[in-house]
């Protein structure tokens, strides 16, 4: 039995959608082509390496999604049974981007992925891919685990940018990056109800439970109390070789190097 079979995330998400339908929430479905080239053809906005990662200031945006002042939840669900996933379907609960000019919206995004060859071990990698949607025209994404904060530019907003477009772009990105994906389905939610987000967070936590457990054990075993090492008298009269914090700086230097490599990789993608 694999980790993800303990709790059926796909069924939980579908049950969530059914419940919201029953509650008569504003709900729309978009059906996208399943073949990658057709999917690409149907995307109205530019995407790819030639689109520069943009930084959008508040005054230049059409809509803001999931900012720290609002609700935000994002995760992925994997299944080895591709039939469970409604391939190519985007479900939107709540207002769409193009009809929310000048607004800030709560934002939830769940991506359901099916593939017989997809192993649990891919979970982290696939989850991290969410952070990478950086070359979609007029779309800025900032992410921390489980949360997304996005801005849509006025330029594409006035041209009708919608969740259908965002969903397609996500499908393209995932399919290109992970050829093992057989089926993919996306849920977006922008309702004002904190309850909706709470429910989704519960599902997300349940899915990630095992992983989080492993991670925190890993953390505990390696935790170094940096505060114990701090001194009050430092005016840096020493060279780095003599400094007590040298190891810490080495680690951060490593982060700097990895960050550079990461940015380079993003540029090439």
């Amino acid at each position: 039995m694999t980790d993800l079979e303990i709790f059926n995330g796909v069924m939980a998400i579908h049950a969530f959608i059914d419940e919201k339908t029953r509650l008569k929430r504003k709900l729309r479905k978009f059906i996208c082509p399943s073949a990658l080239d057709e999917l690409k053809k149907s995307l109205k906005f530019k995407m790819g390496a030639d689109i520069e990662t943009i930084f959008l200031l508040k005054e230049d945006i059409y809509v803001e999604l999931g900012s720290p002042r609002y609700e935000s939840v994002a995760f992925i669900v994997l299944t080895q049974d591709p039939e469970e996933v409604q391939n190519g379907v985007i479900t939107l609960i709540g207002p769409d981007i193009h009809e929310s000019k000048g607004k800030e919206l709560n934002f939830g995004q769940v991506i359901l992925i099916g593939g017989t060859e997809i192993e649990d071990i891919k979970y982290r990698e696939m989850e991290r891919a969410l952070f990478h949607l950086k070359n979609l025209e007029g779309f800025m994404i900032r992410a921390v685990p489980n949360k997304l904060w996005c801005r849509v530019s006025k330029q594409v907003g006035f041209r009708g940018f919608s969740f259908e477009d965002l969903g397609k772009a996500l499908m393209i990105m995932y399919k290109e990056q992970f050829p093992d994906i057989e089926t993919i389905e996306i849920l977006f939610i922008t309702t004002e109800s904190p309850q909706d987000f709470l429910e989704l967070k519960v599902i997300g936590t349940e899915i990630r439970k095992k992983y989080i457990q492993q991670y925190s054990e890993h953390l505990k075993s390696k935790l170094v109390q940096i505060t114990e090492k701090q001194r009050d008298d430092c005016e840096f009269p020493w060279t780095c070789d003599e400094c007590d914090y040298n190891e810490v700086c080495d680690e951060i230097r490593d982060i700097v190097e990895k960050m550079k490599a990461y940015r380079e990789k993003m540029k090439k993608n």
Partner: peptide, 25 residues
């Protein structure tokens, strides 16, 4: 950042790299 450096856990470092733009914003 310094705390993450102090702990030196690869997973945490990777998360920081990915999350840095969010945290800056």
């Amino acid at each position: 950042i310094i705390k993450v450096g102090g702990r030196g856990i690869e997973e945490e470092k990777r998360d920081l790299i990915l999350s840095l733009d969010y945290k800056i914003m």
